[in-house]
Design a protein around this nucleic acid. Structure first.
Length: 462
DNA sequence: ATAGGGTTAG
């Protein structure tokens, strides 16, 4: 090493250690200015550290990361991967895809296993089947198809895209599937609502001799809860007690959730009471468990207990439980009060799910017109699930006229959802409108034929 | 110097 190189290396090391100690954007910007002056603004290690701070640290600023990135002439893979990670955590994750497209074919920044791990996760969230398949092709072309992290990310992605066949195919091709691969394929089945398949795989995994971890148990228990498989859940509970995961918060939360969903509310409560260091999810699953079993009052008193003990700060899901408790207890006045408290005292913006709870609550009480007005006036876009909730209420209370209106909205959003026709046919039948009922049935059969291939989102048109 | 899987509406 020449003396000049040694000096440069020493300076680089000093900058790196200074950047490591950086604690705020203000501090980082000052350092960045000095780095530009000293001519290190094309040094990939130094600039990588800056990008990392801006793009993925808690005090980061993605906009600043972009402006820094744009001035780097030849960014390397680390810098690109870090930018992709940063976009993935941002409100516009599709920008990560744009960046990937821009760098394709540039020799100094060939995508690697890290790039694909990050991108696959982002595509899982975006739900784009086309992009997922394109990326899968690129992965195969680059020979990264059997890279463990990449393959497991692919598995997970196909599960999120509801393509259980491809996920299953991929899984069966793995010579020695590791724990993450097993957990992913089990979770794929849960996501695709194949709960029986998930539990079969869980059993198969045990037989293969692999030791389940906390994630395995959480996923398997959620499958039990979904189909109220209480005996299977109890068996898993006994397996957990044989391991040291009996103290894991998330495993215990899942046990509470499983028992509650299976109707064993007392067992759920028992576990809840014994959790050391309850977190907000512990409280939420218990409140929701009580609420969904008609113990609205108990759910609300548990919520108040949480506040009194200052145990945890309620979040958006807590209020879903609270509103659901009001719904199942028929407490309309209470629900409006809590809705206000949520926004005013806790500064939680109501999501579509909170409106869904309110629509459900008003609808159950027969106030379908109020429910419709709430949807009409809410500041966010309504989705098919909420319209369907209202349609179910219309059916329940024989409000055919409003049901017709709701039907039009559903046709726009999800014209192919089979249960809507069942709901509508039922609604017309209970109102004695037999002609309408058979029309609905015929249109269902017609549409089944025309149903297009699933999976295209806005990103597919990019 | 970076990475994979998980729990909370209807």
């Amino acid at each position: 090493m020449s003396p000049k190189d040694a000096a440069l290396w020493k300076a680089q090391e000093r900058l790196m250690s200074l950047l490591k100690g950086c604690s705020s954007m203000k501090h980082l910007k000052e350092m960045h200015a000095r780095i530009i002056q000293t001519g290190f603004d094309q040094n990939l290690l130094v600039m990588g550290k800056i990008i990392e701070f801006c793009a993925v640290s808690v005090h980061g600023d993605m906009n600043y990361a972009v402006s820094v990135f744009d001035r780097i002439d030849k960014p390397d893979a680390f810098i690109l991967n870090t930018m992709i990670r940063g976009f993935g955590n941002s409100r516009l994750p599709e920008k990560a895809i744009d960046l990937y497209r821009r760098i394709q074919g540039k020799p100094n920044a060939a995508p690697d296993s890290f790039t694909f791990s990050f991108l696959l996760k982002i595509i899982s969230g975006l739900g784009s089947v086309t992009l997922g398949k394109q990326l899968h092709c690129s992965i195969l072309k680059l020979g990264l198809g059997s890279h463990t992290y990449v393959r497991n990310s692919l598995l997970h992605m196909y599960g999120m895209l509801k393509d259980i066949e491809t996920a299953h195919h991929l899984f069966e091709e793995i010579p020695n599937a590791d724990l993450v691969a097993w957990n992913s394929i089990i979770d794929c089945h849960v996501c695709c609502r194949n709960y029986k398949g998930a539990l079969d795989l869980f059993t198969r995994m045990l037989k293969s001799g692999l030791q389940p971890d906390d994630v395995t148990f959480v996923v398997a228990l959620s499958a039990c809860g979904a189909i109220a498989a209480l005996d299977f859940g109890r068996w898993i509970h006994s397996l957990i007690q044989d391991t040291k995961l009996g103290v894991s918060i998330s495993v215990n939360n899942s046990l509470v959730d499983m028992y509650a969903k299976c109707g064993a509310v007392e067992e759920a409560y028992d576990i809840f009471n014994n959790i050391k260091g309850k977190n907000i999810i512990s409280w939420n699953v218990m409140i929701l468990g009580l609420a969904s079993h008609g113990n609205g009052e108990e759910a609300l008193s548990l919520f108040r207990k949480m506040l009194q003990e200052n145990a945890e700060k309620p979040n958006d899901v807590t209020f879903l439980g609270v509103l659901s408790a009001c719904s199942h207890g028929g407490l309309i006045g209470e629900s409006r009060r809590y809705f206000d408290i949520m926004t005013r005292d806790y500064n939680i913006q109501p999501t579509i799910k909170h409106y869904g709870c309110m629509v459900d609550l008003l609808g159950r009480a027969g106030l379908v017109e109020d429910s419709y007005n709430l949807i009409y006036n809410m500041p966010i876009e309504c989705n098919a699930i909420v319209w369907r909730t209202l349609l179910a209420a219309c059916r329940l209370h024989g409000k055919v006229e409003l049901g017709d209106k709701v039907r039009k909205h559903l046709l726009e959003l999800e014209p192919y959802h089979s249960s809507d026709y069942v709901l509508l046919a039922n609604m017309y039948a209970s109102a004695g409108q037999w002609n309408e009922m058979s029309k609905e049935r015929r249109s269902m059969q017609e549409r089944k034929v025309k149903k297009p291939e699933p999976g295209n989102s806005f990103i597919d048109s990019l």
